[in-house]
Each structure stands twice: as C-alpha cells, then as structure tokens.
C-alpha cells in the first residue's frame, strides 16, 4: 500500500487478519450467548444474501471490464458502432438482448465501453436491455406467469420499446457530454504483463463498486423487512397509482431480474397486469442497489436525469399498454 500509511497500515492489516481468522473459526460460537432481535437477523440475512448473489456477477462484470480495458482499443469500438447515432440504437438493444447478464454485471462493462469511445446513448440502451431481454429472465418470467402469457410478452416487448426511447432521450440530452466520473486515463502501469494489469484493475474496480453495492444492499434489505405487503394491496388495483407504486416497490426491493418474476407472481391476485408489468420492467432497469453502483461510475447529475427519464418512459409505456391491451 501507500508509503504514507507504511507500518501503521501493515499493523492494521495484521489485526484485521487475526480478527477475520478468529471469526472464521469461532464466529458462531461467540454469538451463542447474545440475544439478537429477529428484526436485525432478518435484515442481516437478506442483506448478506443479496451480496452473496451479486458478488460472483460483479466479479464477472469487473473481469469483463478489465479485459476490455486491456485488450480492446478505441479504434475497434469505433469501427463496430454504426456512424448514425439513431441507427445505432437498434443493434445496441439486440446486443443487450443477447448478453445473458444481470444488472450488477452490466454496469462496469458499459462504463468501460463508454470510456473506450462507445457513444453514451448506445451504452445506456445496452445497460437497460441486458437485464430484461435475456434468455434466463424470459424463462423465469415464463414459469412464473405461464398462465398469463400477456405478461411474459408484454415485459419483453415494452422493455424493448422503452429502452429505445430511453436511448433516444439520453442522446438528445447528453449529446456532447460524457458524464463519467473519471475520463482521464493514465493507465499505463508499467507492468510486465497484461494479465497482471487485468487483475489489478479488477481488484480496484471490485472495491470501488463493492462499497456502493454494500450500502445499496443494506438499504434494500432494510426495506424488504420493513414493508408490510398488505399495505400495498390497498391501492393495488388503482390504475394510475398501482403501476407507480409497484415501480417504487421494485426500486427499493432491488431484486435480481432473474428472480423478480416470482415475486411479481405473488401479487397476481391483488395487482392489475399493468402494475405487475411496471414492476417487472422498471426493477431490472433501475433499483436502489444499482443506483448506488451507477454513482460509483457516473456523475450525479447524469444518474439523476437518467433515473428521471427511465421512470417517466417506463410509466408512460406501461400506461399506454394498459389502454391498448
């Protein structure tokens, strides 16, 4: 580590190491005597489960991102992307659909592609489509809603349309800005091998994004335990408030897009289809956990505007669908 920290840093590491080993060996014995309220245990359990589930995928995303950083050049990216900005939206959505990646893994990848010269709006489209239009998510939605195929196709269809509109709006607003936190790139570690460079990047990025993930997961698990689902039922059938409420619910729950269909299915009897669709489309695009992860990578102003755009577009799309369907 840094020279400034020097010996103190080493000492701290040593202490940390010893405490971790103690916990590893005797952790559960230590707490036998302590009486922890079940509320705290519930929050803790859900918190850790969100993390355990996300960590492998974040690692994958972080690795993919470091590989791109090390092996893909700006010229390659520019060659692949269609010159006309609007035309580039559709292939972006298709790329998003082909990638079987969830929202945790896609953010590091997209931000890296953007630093490599991919236009922002194209990156955004990939970011919002990948977690929904994806074979695994289609399968889980199908099993959860096999009795109601309009939800399954509605989810995929609306997500596709909404992502194109979102990309378009982002293009109009941020045509000439790059809202990344660090655009400057002096990453020429005079390192002997590209492998070491890749691994080093992966660790740095893991810690950058991990901090936000942990905070996000904690807040999400708190909401998970606090919210009494019966309260939602009261306003569930309302056709204007219903979808908005379910979007807010999806936001705070921060579920993985592969699993949210089953949670949505548990609301089938109390919520109108439009509300369920709002939940299923909005949740994977934005939730508390990935808002914080985006803050690790993008400027605050962009994150706020992006959330505003996604929220409006998804709501309007679901509303229109409600009237057509």
């Amino acid at each position: 580590m840094e020279k400034v920290v020097g010996k103190k840093g080493d000492l701290a590491s040593l202490i940390l190491f010893i405490s971790i080993m103690t916990l590893f060996l005797f952790g559960d014995v230590l707490v036998k005597e302590v009486n922890v309220p079940s509320f705290a245990l519930q929050v803790g359990t859900i918190f850790l489960s969100i993390l355990l589930e996300a960590i492998p995928f974040i690692l994958l995303g972080v690795f993919a991102s470091s590989l791109i950083q090390t092996f893909v050049s700006e010229q390659m990216v520019q060659k692949w992307i269609p010159k006309r900005p609007i035309v580039a939206l559709v292939p972006a959505a298709v790329v998003g659909a082909l990638l079987p990646i969830c929202e945790c893994a896609i953010i590091p990848v997209v931000r890296r592609l953007i630093t490599k010269g991919m236009p922002l709006h194209v990156g955004v489209v990939i970011m919002v489509t990948a977690p929904i239009l994806n074979p695994v998510v289609f399968a889980s939605t199908y099993y959860a809603f096999s009795a109601n195929m309009s939800i399954v196709y509605g989810r995929m269809g609306i997500a596709f349309v909404a992502s194109l509109i979102i990309g378009l709006i982002v293009y109009v607003i941020f045509r000439n800005h790059l809202p990344l936190k660090s655009i400057k790139h002096s990453h020429d570690h005079h390192v002997n091998s590209r492998l070491t460079a890749t691994l080093t990047h992966a660790v740095d990025e893991f810690f950058d994004v991990g901090r936000y993930l942990i905070i996000g997961a904690f807040v999400a698990s708190f909401f998970q335990v606090v919210i009494h689902r019966e309260i939602l039922v009261e306003v569930g059938q309302h056709e204007i408030i219903g979808p908005a409420l379910m979007m807010g619910f999806a936001y705070v729950l921060s579920l993985c897009s592969e699993a949210d269909a089953f949670v949505a299915a548990s609301f089938t009897s109390t919520f109108a289809p439009a509300s369920l669709l709002a939940f299923l489309i909005y949740g994977p695009m934005i939730d508390f956990k990935n808002t914080l992860m985006m803050l690790a990578y993008f400027r605050r102003r962009f994150v706020v505007i992006f959330i505003g755009v996604v929220t409006t577009v998804v709501y309007v799309c679901v509303y229109i669908f409600h009237f057509i369907g």
Partner: peptide, 10 residues
Amino acid sequence: GLTCCVADAT
C-alpha cells in the same frame, strides 16, 4: 420458496 436468494423468498 427461493428463486435466487432470500431476498426473493415467497
């Protein structure tokens, strides 16, 4: 019933 993790337990 769990689909991915405890967060989606129903």
